[in-house]
């Protein structure tokens, strides 16, 4: 890598911010005037947040030198179990919705963690490469969910849960309009803040980069490589749990064939666009946030331009490849 141009501005560090800015202006022009309306922007952020939260965990996994293809399937499984559990509690506790919802979310977080831990266990103790393990669990969890629902839906019986999915927090005024941030967006920022802090300020974060950069060096340096890898999958499991809880609430139902479908690819794409090295060893959590926003803005912009959803997929693919190509040139 060549020397960066000091403290003022480095393309390497701020390249993705710049790209987001350019894209934003472009979308502002193409989608004029609707794109820049506050409601639309809030909506873009909301739509980004579900895959975004998973992408944050994916950042850790990719920095560790791994990959997780099973996130969407786990999300569907976790959300199905969570909604079923919530309904069960609701029947048995005399209709106390808030305790049912809290228990349901706790179950989803715990199950997400356990599913991630299963991947981590197979990867570290079973010594099977992450691609294969998560390819397997992707199939396993998707089809368990389909089997459970007979390929149908699990509807939540709690109205309040659906309201939680649409809830907003933190209101502020933007030129006379009252704008408030949807809960999932807040969750995205909060989790990004926590993970970024862990990455930069804790031993675990340092070890994560060391393991991803050169596992052998890390091993010789007395880093417990397996443990570090395992926890990366634990973290993404928790992220999946959080995302599943928010997304299930959004529709107040879980459609097992569609829930979380394709999340793995969107999450990986966001991480890569955000500047995290696919080979592991270094990465940026906030870069990933920018990556998910970029993907969502592109989709939003193309929607406004009237492009068919199929062609939107094509554009998305081109953007992923182009962004990695540009990053490669910078090095």
């Amino acid at each position: 890598m060549t020397a960066t141009s000091g403290s003022r501005f480095s393309l390497e560090k701020h390249g993705s911010v710049l790209a987001l800015g350019v894209l934003f202006i472009l979308a502002g022009i193409i989608g004029w005037p609707y794109f820049l309306q506050v409601e639309n922007l809030v909506n873009v952020m909301r739509q980004s947040s579900y895959t975004g939260i998973i992408a944050l965990g994916m950042t850790f996994v990719i920095i560790s030198g791994g990959i997780d293809l099973s996130v969407g399937a786990i999300a569907a499984f976790v959300a199905s179990c969570g909604v079923l559990f919530m309904n069960y509690v609701l029947v048995h506790n005399g209709g106390n919705e808030s305790s049912a919802i809290l228990l349901g979310i706790a179950v989803m977080l715990a199950l997400g963690f356990l599913c991630g831990a299963l991947n981590g266990f197979l990867i570290t103790k079973g010594k099977i490469v992450p691609f294969i393990v998560t390819l397997g669990t992707m199939s396993i969890f998707r089809y368990i969910s389909l089997q459970m629902a007979n390929a149908g839906e699990f509807a939540s019986h709690s109205q309040a849960y659906g309201e939680f999915g649409m809830s907003k927090v933190i209101s502020f005024d933007v030129s006379g309009n009252n704008v408030s941030l949807p809960t999932p967006v807040l969750a995205l920022f909060l989790i990004a803040f926590i993970l970024s802090f862990i990455l930069h300020n804790t031993r675990y974060g340092r070890y994560l980069c060391a393991v991803g950069s050169n596992a052998r060096v890390a091993q010789y340096s007395a880093v417990r490589v397996d443990r570090v890898r395992f926890w990366a999958y634990g973290v993404i499991g928790l992220c999946i749990g959080a995302s599943a809880a928010l997304l299930a609430a959004r529709f107040n139902t879980v459609s097992t064939p569609n829930f979380g479908l394709g999340f793995e690819l969107d999450a990986i794409a966001a991480v890569i666009i955000g500047g995290t090295a696919m080979a592991g060893g270094r990465g940026s959590v906030w870069g990933t946030v920018i990556g998910v926003f970029m993907l969502q803005i592109i989709q939003n912009m193309l929607n406004m331009a009237g492009l068919s959803p199929y062609l939107q997929g094509v554009v998305k693919g081109v953007v992923i490849i182009a962004s990695v190509y540009i990053q490669r040139q910078r090095q």
Partner: peptide, 24 residues
């Protein structure tokens, strides 16, 4: 290169890699 240093890490990050617990 293979077992001693992390080439992508800074001087600081390399030197404290084994002893990091002492700084926490």
């Amino acid at each position: 290169q293979g077992a001693g240093i992390v080439t992508g890490f800074t001087v600081t990050e390399n030197i404290t890699l084994v002893s990091l617990a002492n700084y926490c």
